[in-house]
Simulated scan of single mutants.
Amino acid sequence: MFEKISQLLLVKTVGCYVNIMSFIAPEKSFALAYKLFSEPRKGRLKKVLLPKTLLDADFKTHIYEDHEFQTYTWTPDKTQQSENKGNDEIILLIHGWESNASRWKKLLKHLKKTKKTIIAIDGPAHGLTSGKEFNVPQYAKYINLIVQEYNPSIAIGHSIGGNALAYYQAHYKHNINKMVLLGAPSDFEIILKNYVRLLSLNSRVHQSLIAFTKKKFNITVSEFSAAKFLENSTINGIVAHDQDDKVVLFEEGKKISNAWKTSQFIETKGLGHSLHDAYLYQTIVDFIEK
């Protein structure tokens, strides 16, 4: 309890500092607000301490502009090299905020039964991927590079990774025909409002973040929505969301599913945001193999 109170006080103190600076040195204040919003505090990995799940994969470092990003490939036959791309169909895994490719440990046990090649990405500023800033458009660029190289037909995203997949399929050419979103948020506007509320930021800072989003990504906050990205999609999909999700509102999952006409909605209870569940994972496998 004491630790939670201390963390809350620290967060509010930082927010107070940003608010004060918005009047004294506004540019510095706005830059700090965005840095705090976009820089993960967890989810990094070290090559010398990789989780056992990832040691079982063939891993490769890809270069994009001035960044390196990491992928991990599991083929149905370990004698095959990842360059051979394994089975005819490939499954792409996209993790969420402050996580990395090892979060798929429990799902991997089920996916390997399909005998398909599986590729997982470490997102920007996560795992072994370089950088300090995480954002969905950058994540989508990494997804696109892997899709162009390996041509996966199935994609699974958790949390903001699901949002990145929705953004990707709306902005890039691809051959993905099945997609699964697990505990994914829909509207960036809500994510931003939650951040502003958490730090108790004033309207000056809030409006600066809205303007910065428009300038940096050429999209308004209201348009930055997984539901809108998927409303014209013909990809077959699953949207799974738990009633007890404390990170992303249950209504966000419903909003995505309602907009995405070729998806089915799976409602769970008691799984929280992680959605780790053998029955759910078997349902996903059945959907993949259908």
Rank of each mutant, 00 (worst) to 15 (best):
I63H: 14
D66Y: 08
D66I: 05
H67P: 00
H67A: 13
H67F: 14
F69K: 11
F69I: 11
T71W: 09
T75N: 13
T75K: 10
P76D: 14
P76V: 03
K78P: 14
Q80W: 13
Q80M: 13
Q80G: 05
Q81P: 03
Q81M: 09
E83Y: 14
K85V: 00
K85D: 00
N87L: 09
D88V: 07
I91E: 06
L93P: 07
I94E: 00
I94Q: 00
E98S: 11
A101G: 09
S102W: 01
S102Y: 02
S102C: 05
R103M: 15
W104Y: 10
L107M: 15
L107I: 07
L108A: 05
L108W: 04
K109G: 12
H110E: 12
H110R: 09
K113S: 12
T114N: 10
T114R: 04
K115Y: 10
K116D: 10
T117H: 03
T117S: 14
I119M: 11
I121F: 09
A125Y: 06
A125K: 06
K132A: 10
K132L: 10
N135M: 07
N135W: 06
P137H: 10
K141N: 11
K141R: 12
Y142G: 04
L145S: 08
I146S: 03
V147P: 02
V147Q: 14
Q148W: 03
Q148K: 12
E149N: 09
E149Y: 03
Y150G: 02
Y150A: 06
N151S: 13
P152G: 07
A155H: 04
G162W: 00
L165K: 01
H174D: 08
N175H: 14
V180W: 00
L182N: 01
G183H: 00
G183I: 01
A184D: 00
F188M: 09
F188P: 06
E189S: 15
L192E: 04
R197H: 13
L199R: 08
L201I: 03
L201N: 04
R204S: 11
R204C: 06
H206A: 14
S208T: 05
L209N: 07
